[in-house]
């Protein structure tokens, strides 16, 4: 399970800034994705804005990819990052699904 190549190569100096920015953007875009999704569902935003939420998720996934490749992560960490990306994708759906169900049961 130990990653053979985990730290074998140094990160080039010029790559540090893109790494920090892309990993911050992962969370920023991820925040926009879940924020817009939730806002549409509770009718704070119009329905047509929903595709924008998914665009933000794609940006998140891209930033994760960018960050991972610049960091030269091994296979295991790469898989962990994919799991995180999918988890983030499903999260607001799951939250909405469950919350909606409880509200339905309790208010009708």
């Amino acid at each position: 399970m130990i990653e053979e190549v985990v730290m074998r190569q140094d990160i080039p100096l010029d790559d540090f800034l893109p790494i920090f920015i892309s990993s911050a953007m992962v969370m920023v875009f991820g925040g926009f994705y879940v924020g817009i999704y939730t806002a549409v569902k509770v009718k704070l935003l119009k329905k047509w804005t929903m595709p924008i939420a998914y665009v933000f998720w794609m940006l998140t996934a891209y930033c994760l990819y960018l960050m991972g490749s610049l960091m030269m992560v091994g296979e295991f960490t790469a898989k962990a990052l994919v799991v995180a990306a999918i988890g983030l994708f499903l999260l607001p759906h799951a939250v909405y699904f469950m919350q909606h169900q409880v509200h339905e049961e309790n208010e009708h």
């Binding site: 969370m27 991820g30 925040g31 879940v34 924020g35 939730t38 806002a39 569902k41 509770v42 009718k43 704070l44 960490t77 962990a80 990052l81 799991v83 995180a84 988890g87 983030l88 999260l91 607001p92 939250v95 909405y96 919350q99």
Partner: peptide
């Protein structure tokens, strides 16, 4: 990598309940 997920979830939750 998973640790931010609950933080995101807590964030949605407040927004959701408020909305």
């Amino acid at each position: 990598a998973l640790e931010p997920l609950p933080l995101v979830a807590m964030f949605i939750h407040v927004l959701y309940d408020w909305g």
